[in-house]
């Protein structure tokens, strides 16, 4: 029984480590699928919890094993003790960790709303056939806290008339981004008061 539990624990640790590695890779570029972006943040949360362990090397593992040896009877109890161990270890960093958790939660919200905005624009943008030209146009959007588009400006046109026009038509079709409604004011001001949409003619990998 003990052996099984120990191996289970080791397995869990390996999983945690793998998820940490995965999260590192997935930070820079995120697929926009809503569920996926949430997933990424889930990994981030784990990452934060992981960190002290990494700092203290194999120690936590030993302590977990000890805990297992001492309290074999109930799984829930084991879990409790694990959490307890972690918090104990984290004590000096707890404030920093909490702020990090908050940050990643903000990040999650930003990602979610960005994905919704992206879908919304994609659903109205009728992309012209630009043949093989690689074009990009940047539009600055200015929102009111209500989500209303107060102003927009093409700050970096592609200089392809038809492409730029298609972009302007798409933005003209949308007058509200209701999604930002109810957003934490600070979060809104720092992210969605002004933001840019980058329209690209092709998604070349090269």
């Amino acid at each position: 029984m003990n052996k099984i539990l120990t191996s289970l624990n080791t397995f869990a640790l390996i999983l945690l480590f793998l998820s940490f590695v995965f999260s590192v890779f997935s930070i820079t570029t995120l697929k926009v699928d809503e569920t996926q972006s949430i997933k990424v943040n889930f990994y981030e949360l784990i990452e934060i919890a992981e960190q002290p362990k990494r700092l203290s090397g194999t120690k936590p593992k030993e302590s977990i094993q000890e805990a297992d040896l001492n309290k074999v009877e109930e799984n829930s109890e084991v879990k409790k003790s694990l959490d307890f161990e972690k918090y104990k270890l984290n004590k000096p960093d707890i404030k920093r960790e909490l702020s990090k958790i908050k940050l990643s939660k903000e990040r999650e919200v930003i990602l979610k709303i960005s994905a919704i905005i992206q879908d919304k624009i994609s659903s109205v943008w009728i992309k012209p056939n630009s043949l093989s030209k690689v074009l990009a146009a940047k539009v600055l959007i200015n929102l009111a806290p209500s989500g209303e588009v107060i102003n927009f400006e093409m700050v970096e046109p592609s200089n392809d008339k038809v492409f730029d026009e298609s972009v302007l038509i798409a933005i003209n079709k949308i007058s509200f981004f209701e999604e930002v409604l109810g957003l934490d004011r600070k979060l809104f001001e720092s992210n969605f008061r002004n933001f840019k949409l980058v329209f690209k003619s092709s998604g070349e990998i090269e």
Partner: peptide
């Protein structure tokens, strides 16, 4: 198409949302 969002950690740069996919509508 792979659609990407770049989130900038830098406070001074604006959030940029990349749009590659267009509508299926005509």
């Amino acid at each position: 198409l792979i659609i990407l969002i770049f989130l900038s950690s830098n406070i001074f740069s604006l959030l940029e949302i990349e749009i590659i996919k267009g509508s299926d509508n005509l």
